[in-house]
Computed example of a mutant assay.
Amino acid sequence: MSETTKSSTATLDEHVEAAGPVSPPGGKGRPARLAGLGGSGAGGTALGVGTATIFLSAVVLIPLAAVIWKGAAQGPGGFWDAITTPDAWAALKLTVIASLVVALINLFMGTLIAWVLVRDSFPGKGLLDLLIDLPFALPTIVAGLVLLTLYGTDSPLGVSLAYTRVGVVVALLFVTLPFVVRTVQPVLLEFDREMEQAAASLGAGNWTIFRRIILPNLIPAMLAGTALAFTRAVAEFGSTVLISGNVPFKTQVAAVHIFGQIESDNTAAAAATSTALLVLSLLVLLSIDLLRRWGARRG
């Protein structure tokens, strides 16, 4: 090689080293562009979080804060007096007890229905799966009318549950059943069946497989669905207002009592009872969440 060529080559190498590595399109140069996009994405995330916060504040937080402020406007003594009047206390007690009964029934029956829909095959399975969502789509006042027609004084089934506490429980069951089913069903669908097969190959029975492998994975979803069913039952109005008959001290639930207080222009007492229901629902949801977190830590 001539001296001129060597000199030119050395000069070219010096320019390349000074300029640094050249990244091909789509190669190492991409992280720099992604860094710029990352900054834009962070701004987009902040905008999304801000929009969501404003929307939730306008739709949920501010109205709830207004109800709590109205209920507590008369001070702790006035709040306690409003929720411990004989009719308010009877309505709250009936609502809590009926909601607990409904939540426990849904815990077992909702899990069983979800299991049947996922693990079994039978004629009409698709129709049954569709009917589970009917309470979500049906207006609750229409549900109350349907239940009153089926279980009223002129029941075609010969079963009269109108104006009884059992009728209230049946109405709450109707509107809350989908919560546990639709919470447990996806977990069963995504469950790894190979773990069951491995346990069976090691000699484990069906009950042992369910208790030691399947149930621990289902418990968080079961608890979440049960909590949602309870809070939904506590706040139910439409399906109970007809079949309960709104009999004070007997079948009047808290939501119907609140409606009666508003009609009587006693908004402070209505707000106090609403605040009591709100606090109860939040405590239940918080307790379930803490229990799930404790279970996750314990494995």
Rank of each mutant, 00 (worst) to 15 (best):
T226I: 13
A58F: 10
G29P: 04
A137I: 14
I141C: 07
V253Y: 01
R193H: 11
I62W: 09
L291V: 14
S23E: 06
V118F: 01
R30S: 00
A82E: 08
S23P: 11
A35L: 06
T53M: 10
D289E: 14
P248L: 10
D87N: 09
I83Q: 07
W80I: 12
A224E: 08
V142E: 05
T164I: 13
S7V: 13
I132G: 09
D289S: 11
T267V: 14
G205Y: 07
G36Y: 06
A73Y: 09
L150C: 12
A52H: 03
A254R: 01
F55D: 00
I209H: 03
L104G: 13
F136S: 06
A296I: 03
T273Q: 13
L228Y: 07
L148Q: 04
E17H: 01
A58Q: 04
W69C: 06
K125M: 11
V59F: 11
A10D: 07
T4M: 02
I141Q: 06
G39Q: 03
D81S: 15
R211M: 12
P76C: 01
A162F: 08
L148E: 04
V247R: 05
V16F: 06
A271P: 03
S2L: 09
G260T: 12
A199S: 15
L218G: 04
R182D: 07
G205N: 09
A73Q: 10
D133S: 15
D87Q: 15
A32R: 10
S8W: 06
V234W: 00
F174R: 04
P31N: 02
L189Y: 00
L202Y: 05
T53W: 01
V96I: 15
T149V: 09
E190Q: 14
N217F: 03
G144F: 11
L56E: 00
G41P: 00
T9V: 12
F108N: 00
A42W: 10
R232G: 07
G295V: 07
A204I: 03
A137R: 00
P63N: 05
